[in-house]
Computed example of a mutant assay.
Amino acid sequence: MLLTDTHTHIYYESEPGKLRDMMQRCFDHDIRRLFLPNVNVASIAMIDKMVEDYPENCFAMAGLHPCDVKEDYEEVLDLICESIPDRNICAIGEIGIDLYWDKSTLEVQQRAFSEQINWAKDLDLPIVIHCRDAFNEVFEVLEAAKDDKLRGIMHCFTGDLRQAERALELGFVLGIGGVVTYKNSGLAEVLKQIRLSDIVLETDAPYLAPVPFRGKPNESSYLKYIAEKIADIHQVTLQEVAEQTTANSVAIFKR
């Protein structure tokens, strides 16, 4: 069996021994593909070190997280963009709009989001979207950018069925993480109506740990609990979930 964590910040762990243990726990649970979203300039080196240490298992993205979009975002984007030719990246991400923490930066978030979508199109890469309290705003940008090159993952999807369908119509798959295991999230009911071919699995570690670790630091090895929940929702085997969601990730990232 082969499971794929399409979104993990495992590189935040700075203690080498703890990081090795985390990776070994992934391998012990058949999680051997980890995709690493970039958030700012500082995270580039951390991600590249993971890719260097685990070239068969870890894959890099490049992008500016919406919560890191400030007034100087153009300078920061230039630095991230300049790093891309020297890196073997698989996606532009994580990018998008976050209105949970600060609604005042919406305009610059929109501009940064649009610019990075254009990077992805120029490089023929998927995008990985962060969307928090901003579905309408994200969809507005995506509708304006819609063409046959626009594709990717709606990371940490927690929306309703109509929002799920709209994301799929725009050429995206849904990134499903620990929230699906939360009793009152409502996400399980939505996913009953979504095909396995339209989702990928993720942890977003160290955030949003699944049950039974809710409220504690998350890690990529906990992906198995998310996969088990999906298997239960769709009444299929864990093997089927692993095969389909990993195949979906390969189709998106081309690796």
Rank of each mutant, 00 (worst) to 15 (best):
L150K: 10
D124A: 09
E107A: 13
P85W: 11
H130I: 02
A112D: 11
F139S: 08
I97R: 00
L123A: 04
I92H: 02
E140Y: 12
D133V: 09
K146T: 07
D102S: 07
I89D: 00
H155P: 08
D102M: 06
K103Q: 13
A112I: 11
H130F: 01
L125D: 01
L125K: 11
F135H: 15
K103H: 10
P126N: 12
L123H: 07
I127M: 08
K149F: 11
A144C: 07
I97W: 00
E140R: 14
V108Y: 03
D148K: 11
N136Y: 13
S114E: 14
K146F: 12
N118L: 13
V141A: 09
I92T: 04
D102I: 05
A145E: 14
L150F: 10
R132D: 10
W119F: 13
A134Q: 03
R151G: 04
W101I: 05
A91T: 04
I89M: 03
L123C: 07
A145R: 07
I129C: 03
I92N: 01
V138C: 11
E107L: 11
D98W: 03
D133A: 13
V108N: 09
N136R: 15
E143T: 08
R111W: 01
I92S: 04
Q116L: 05
L125Y: 01
R87C: 04
T105K: 13
L150M: 10
D86A: 15
E140Q: 14
F113R: 03
V141S: 08
A91C: 08
F113M: 05
D133P: 09
P85R: 11
E94V: 04
A134K: 01
V108H: 00
K103S: 12
D147Y: 12
Y100G: 09
L106G: 09
K103C: 08
S104K: 10
H130T: 02
D147S: 14
E115M: 14
E107T: 12
D147N: 15
N136F: 11
G93E: 00
A145D: 06
E143K: 13
A91D: 03
R132S: 09
V138L: 04
D147P: 12
I153V: 15
D147I: 12
D148M: 04
G152L: 05
A145G: 06
E115D: 13
N136K: 15
S104E: 12
E107S: 14
V108A: 05
S114Q: 13
N118A: 14
R111F: 03
K103R: 15
L125C: 06
D133Q: 14
E137W: 04
D124P: 01
I89G: 00
L142W: 05
D98Y: 04
D102Q: 07
R87G: 02
N136T: 14
C131P: 05
R151L: 05
D102W: 06
G96E: 01
F139W: 07
K146H: 14
